[in-house]
Design a protein around this nucleic acid. Structure first.
Length: 886
RNA sequence: GCCGGGAUGGCGGAAUCGGUAGACGCACCGGACUCAAAAUCCGGCGGUGAAAGCUGUGGGGGUUCGAGUCCCCCUCCCGGCACCA
């Protein structure tokens, strides 16, 4: 055994061993029939070039769980793949004149090497890349099924247009009016495209959230908010304009205030607004302003309410009073019918609007004991469950719920409306005007219109040699792709050049992992064995987009009879981000200069407190700007590759697990990485020192885990053993809670116990001076004390190595073999604390008198309450505490 | 505004059922080894105090023999949603 810990050598050897023994090949036919399956999945990466720390954290968490469950006896599967379509490939292509396909495949090859160097227990035989035809053909196939069932449909609609990426974005991909990827201000454009009717599943997607106890509360809440169910009344104001009769439909959650309507407001894009603008240039100009200006403002919520009267009047559905219609910039065309009733007395926005334009304010709700004033209505009328109707004719005196019921009933009787549920969720627009994506399998025929590509012509293969130049979709210029024959009439036709949103690709990859190699079906019976995913791990940033789409896609597959489960991910762990310190300096020109943490020297006071910072280069002060996500622009990134090269994968993994619980953010600290390395070195050194004794014992009793040592343990050894088993018990508890930071600390504590001098000394009272150093341990005589000591060390090390195995698999693998515990720690039984070891003769009790801590007391573990009280009363501290009391 | 999560030493973080607050690590301080330094090892490390003790988990109340933990009120921080009618 090497005396020095050499991570690169032992890590390479361990990985060669795993590869040679096909250790991580998963099978639907487990070795033992009673083995439960455990499908552990980390969100697959986009092959952007190289791994970042977020990936390392994500995949380490997944790997720890995979290896832990394997040693616990589960039939585990941990696959990996590549979310390989996407815009960065096109951008890189434009910069380097390289086809996106080549760029992507090169990145995959490099990043796969990086993942392998982390020592992940991945079944690479299931690897997939979404940009390969054998994967995306099933996107196309399912899309065609959705067209048949009406889930997929084509429409022309105002869409979110990202001017930088030159493509449409789904609502989910627009954040604060900007593109989720580019940050560019989104424009509105009317473009035809394909949509998936996710709204048909809105009710299911919402109600099933309650049946996902393994998901974080936060994610479920975010999805519920996004789906946005609201109950109210949809009704119409009839109108008759120049003998052109019609109805202005609106939606309200506050039908009880219907009698307080003093105006109506419609969105700029509303047909009624367009009609009024026909002979009103001023209004037309205003509508134009709204259309172009509104989304430009990132802070729409605080934008001033603006409007203009249309001069058109509609009729109040119950009173028949004429109501003026306005165009309002605060009315959204995309929600409800793009029109609202205006009740200034009981709605904040309507109030602001009415006040600005001098529209009447009519109170129709009163709260007993409060005096109404339009300015102060919010203060006393915040809760709609209080208050009753007034000035509302026959509805006077009704509370909120009864008034809504009564008014809805009257509207229904008049044939003008009824109660309705309204959703915030919109259908999912999947057309993208981009090259590097899955082709939409449609052919446009001049005679037959839009014709689906027949199944036997799938996949529609994307040419991989295009180099985009930034001027639109290069597919449109590829005659060999575009020109085709209409499948229906055979006439020359054009192939659709839009590709699918890449979120389609990631909506079902987890199911495909269960069925590698099937080229005749999207999925097969093997999904029945592996799915749903038992543990999914990924970033919180996917809480809405990817996770909601996947839940929707799963339901579509279920309704087509492809799968039988409702939810794809039984348990979800959202790992925290990896942060690092940010150092800056203001430049002369007023800009900000960033300094990498290793370019900064911290100034400390005598207690170790940071008092200032300066740049290493020039000694001038820099300011500390707290922590933030690692990024190139802030110069605070740490490259996983150099970390692994310096310390090895085990140190990187151990540090990641130790620094913070998985769900919390992790603040980078170079010194703590050193600490992790130091610990693993100490583990190795300790194993080296005891190598011969442990090997001797293991060779004598190859299968032996005897629960009693050959010669009895000394008192100190007994205590040490109890401590080890107590830490083990704690570690097992924490593993169950996914609290890996305290598991790591339990490992450190166990090593500390094993290293403590008392373990190898006879009971001769307190040991004077420092304990014997490592070299002396080797020369220790083989007395009875040393025999029981060897036994204790062997047991302690076997526990420690197995606890470490999921976190630092390479060193655990090497030590397990070096010390002859067995051939493969992967096959070792998970360690369990032994009751006898946990027993104590004496226990320490804390003495509290009147709630104040007054000392401690050692009593026999078997003592009963009366005995303890007797001992306590006899103790001096108690006497003193009682005696001092008045 | 609404929803969710937080606040514990110089720092990252422990504390499972209401029962020794600060485990473990980092940083720092002292010592050993060394010509010296690094590495390593030993010891110390919330505040205050010579000590006994007192005090201390964002702030204020409460329940309890006993509260970081339970209840009420407040402040601040992080994340999500938001002219959603």
């Amino acid at each position: 055994m090497q005396p020095q810990y050499q991570p690169s050598a032992i890590e390479q050897a361990a990985r060669s061993f795993w590869t040679a023994s096909k250790s991580f090949l998963a099978s639907e036919m487990p070795a033992r029939p009673d083995q439960p399956k455990y499908y552990c999945l980390s969100m697959f990466p986009y092959p952007s070039g190289k791994l970042h720390m977020g990936h390392v954290r994500n995949y380490t968490i997944g790997d720890v769980l995979t290896r832990y469950h394997r040693m616990r006896g589960y039939n585990v599967m941990q696959p990996m793949g590549w979310d390989a379509f996407g815009l960065p490939a096109e951008n890189a292509a434009m910069q380097n004149q390289v086809p996106p396909a080549k760029w992507t495949y090169d990145n995959i090859a490099y990043m796969k090497g990086q993942l392998e160097s982390l020592g992940l227990a991945i079944d690479w035989s299931r690897e997939l890349a979404t940009c390969k035809p054998d994967y995306y053909r099933w996107n196309q196939w399912l899309f065609l099924r959705m067209l048949e069932s009406g889930i997929a449909y084509k429409k022309t609609q105002v869409v979110n247009w990202d001017p930088v990426d030159q493509t449409v974005l789904a609502n989910e991909q627009v954040i604060d009016g900007r593109g989720w990827r580019t940050g560019a201000v989104i424009e509105k454009r009317e473009i035809p495209g394909y949509y998936l009717a996710i709204t048909k599943y809105a009710e299911q997607l919402l109600s099933a959230l309650d049946r996902l106890p393994g998901w974080p509360e936060r994610v479920r809440t975010m999805q519920a908010n996004w789906i946005g169910k609201s109950r109210g009344v949809r009704f119409s104001f009839p109108y008759d304009l120049d003998r052109e009769a019609g109805q202005l439909w609106v939606y309200t959650t506050r039908a009880d205030t219907l009698m307080g309507v003093t105006f109506c407001a419609v969105a700029a894009e509303h047909p009624l607004a367009a009609r009024a603008a026909r002979d009103n240039p001023e209004l037309a100009a205003f509508i134009d302003e709204c259309r172009h200006g509104s989304v430009m403002e990132a802070d729409m919520a605080t934008m001033e309410k603006k409007g203009m009267p249309t001069g058109l009047f509609v009729t109040h559905p119950l009173t028949g009073v004429p109501i003026q219609v306005w165009v309002g910039n605060y009315v959204l065309m995309s929600y409800g019918d793009g029109a609202v009733m205006g009740v200034p007395a009981h709605d904040e926005r309507d109030f602001a609007f009415a006040k600005k334009y001098g529209i009447a304010i009519a109170q129709v709700i009163t709260v007993p004991g409060e005096r109404f004033s339009p300015e102060a209505w919010q203060a006393w009328y915040a809760d709609k469950t209080q208050g009753v109707c007034i000035n509302s004719g026959r509805f006077d005196g009704l509370g909120h719920a009864q008034a809504v019921d009564a008014i809805a009933a009257d509207l229904a009787a008049a044939g003008l409306g009824d109660k309705q549920v309204q959703w915030r969720l919109r259908d999912w627009g999947v057309s993208r005007q981009r090259y590097w994506g899955c082709p939409i399998p449609i052919i446009h025929c001049p005679a037959c219109g839009d014709v689906p590509v027949p199944d036997d012509q799938l996949p529609v293969v994307l040419p991989e040699d295009c180099v985009p130049d930034g001027s639109g979709n290069p597919l449109a210029k590829r005659a060999d792709f575009v020109d085709c024959a209409c499948p229906r009439c055979g006439a020359p036709a054009r192939r659709e050049t839009d590709t699918m949103d890449t979120f389609v690709d990631s909506s079902w990859y987890y199911a495909r992992f269960a069925c590698p190699g099937n080229d005749t079906a999207m999925v097969d019976e093997r999904v029945g064995y592996w799915m749903p995913v038992d543990q999914y791990i990924g970033g919180i940033e996917h809480a809405i987009l990817h996770l909601l789409y996947s839940r929707f896609w799963t339901r579509v597959m279920r309704d087509l009879g492809l799968v039988t489960y409702d939810e794809p991910f039984a348990n979800l762990l959202t790992q925290g981000m990896v942060l690092n310190h940010i150092f800056t300096r203001r430049t002369d020109k007023g800009g900000i200069q960033y300094f990498a943490p290793d370019e900064v020297k911290l100034e400390l006071d005598a207690s170790g407190k940071v008092t200032g910072a300066s740049a290493v280069a020039d000694g001038q002060p820099v300011s500390y700007d707290g922590v933030g996500t690692m990024s190139k622009s802030k110069r605070n990134g740490v490259d996983p590759q150099s970390l692994i090269q310096t310390y090895g994968a085990d140190t990187a993994r151990f540090y990641m697990m130790f620094a913070s619980p998985p769900e919390q953010t992790l603040e980078w600290n170079d010194s703590s990485v050193e600490g992790a390395y130091r610990f693993l070195r100490r583990v190795w050194a300790f194993a080296h020192v005891w190598h011969d004794q442990v090997v001797a014992l293991n060779s004598r009793e190859p299968n032996g885990q005897p629960e009693t040592p050959g010669s009895p343990l000394t008192g100190r050894q007994k205590t040490a053993r109890r401590e080890i088993h107590t830490h083990l018990k704690q570690a097992n508890y924490d593993f169950g809670k996914f609290q890996f930071n305290t598991v790591a600390s339990a490992c450190m504590k166990i090593l500390k116990v094993l290293e403590s001098p008392g373990v190898e000394m006879a009971d001769v009272g307190p040991v004077g001076g420092a304990g014997p150093d490592a070299d002396q341990r080797l020369n220790f005589e083989h007395t009875a004390v040393s025999a029981s000591r060897d036994w204790l060390v062997r047991e302690g090390l076997s526990i420690l190595i197995r606890l470490l195995a999921p976190i630092t698999p390479h060193i655990a693998h090497a030590l397990w073999r070096e010390l002859k515990y067995g051939d493969d720690v992967l096959d070792a039984l998970w360690p369990e604390p032994i009751d006898i070891a946990l027993e104590q003769d004496e226990i320490e009790l804390m003495l509290q008198v009147n709630g104040k801590l007054r000392g401690s007391l050692r009593v026999p573990a078997a003592a009963d309450k009366a005995q303890i009280e007797l001992i306590a009363r006899a103790s001096e501290t108690v006497h003193k505490a009682i005696g001092d009391a008045p």
